[in-house]
Structures are given as structure tokens and as C-alpha cells.
């Protein structure tokens, strides 16, 4: 099970890295086509925006560790670990409620876009925006798990936020 999760994580990271590399490459193609060859291309902007959308929600849902999320840690970092865990559980519960409550309306929203095509490539937009549903599911699984671990009194190392210390080994991520 642990191995499977580690393997999946490597896989999702590889996909995110590939999306960023593609974004980089398409940007370079866009500049070269316009400046070096004077044959500007219209499709590059849309491809970049689509890749960016997917990178944010794919990465945000599947690749971010708890500590990678940007959070306002003023209060959190000044309380002891048991209190932090209670904070974490309350936050998880509220987030879970909101995401669950808005999930079906969001499915309906994304599905609506089957009748609209994107500006340049003419892709049906429910394919493009569908990534957000994956993001929502990933968040619900993540925070459902945090809540379960709390109820089972299991220490959740994943959920611990320790701030800068983890970078002391060397490279800032």
C-alpha cells in the first residue's frame, strides 16, 4: 500500500513536471515563431493557459504535501502539537463540508460547458475545466483522511507543518 502510494506520487509529480516543461517549451516556440521567423501563432496562448490551469489544479490536488500549501501560520506555529492537531481537524471538517456541498453543483457547471468551445483550438470546454473536479475529489480524500486519522488518534506526519526547518539540508525547493 505504502509503495503503491509512493509510486502514484512519483507518477503525479512526473505529470506536473511534464506540464511545466511543456508550458516552457510552448512559450519559447511562441517567441521564436514571432521574433525569429515572423510567423506568429495564435494557438500558443490558449495552450499555455490550458497547461497553467491543469498545472495549478493537478499539482494543487495531487502533488502538494500539506506543508507545500501556503497558509497563514501566525497562530498555528505558536501553539503546541496537540492543539495544532485539533486546529487541523476543525479546518479539515469545515473544508470537507464546503467541498462536498459544492461538488454536485460544480459537476453540473463543468458539464454545462459541453456546448461551448475554446477560443482558438475549439476544444469543448468541459474537457478543459474537468480538471477542477479531480482537484475537488483529491482535496476531499485528503481532508477526509486527516479527519479519520484525528478520530483514530493516529499521528499524521503528513499533516504536520514545520515551516522552514525542512529546507535546512540545502536547496530551497
Amino acid at each position: 500500500m505504502k509503495q503503491l502510494i509512493a509510486g502514484l506520487r512519483r507518477g503525479t509529480e512526473a505529470v506536473a513536471a511534464a506540464m511545466l516543461a511543456a508550458l516552457f517549451f510552448v512559450f519559447l516556440v511562441q517567441i521564436a515563431a514571432r521574433y525569429l521567423f515572423n510567423v506568429p501563432m495564435g494557438w500558443t496562448v490558449e495552450v499555455c493557459l490550458t497547461l497553467w490551469l491543469w498545472l495549478v489544479f493537478w499539482g494543487g490536488g495531487l502533488c502538494l504535501r500539506a506543508s507545500d500549501h501556503i497558509r497563514f501560520d501566525l497562530l498555528y506555529l505558536s501553539v503546541n502539537r496537540p492543539t495544532q492537531r485539533i486546529f487541523g481537524a476543525i479546518a479539515a471538517l469545515i473544508i470537507l463540508i464546503a467541498f462536498a456541498a459544492s461538488f454536485l453543483p460544480t459537476v453540473d457547471y463543468v458539464w454545462f460547458y459541453k456546448i461551448k468551445r475554446s477560443n482558438t483550438l475549439g476544444i469543448r470546454l468541459h474537457y478543459v475545466f474537468g480538471i477542477y473536479l479531480l482537484f475537488m475529489i483529491a482535496i476531499m480524500v485528503r481532508y477526509g483522511n486527516v479527519l479519520l486519522n484525528f478520530l483514530r488518534r493516529k499521528e499524521d506526519i503528513q499533516g504536520q507543518i514545520i515551516g522552514y526547518a525542512r529546507h535546512d539540508e540545502g536547496a530551497i525547493k
Binding site: 515572423n38 510567423v39 506568429p40 495564435g42 500558443t44 496562448v45 477560443n119 482558438t120 475549439g122
Partner: peptide, 26 residues
Amino acid sequence: AGFKLRMPPSDAWQFLGKSLGANPVP
């Protein structure tokens, strides 16, 4: 010919730029 003409970023607009004889850029 050869002018990089900015047009709004969508297929329809880019086509209009091209039909004017320019190289449309979004």
C-alpha cells in the same frame, strides 16, 4: 505583409488579422 498586427486572442480575430494581409499576434 510582414506586419505583426496584434489581434485579440481568439481564432475568429486572428483570422481577421490574417485576411488583412498581416501576421496576427495574440
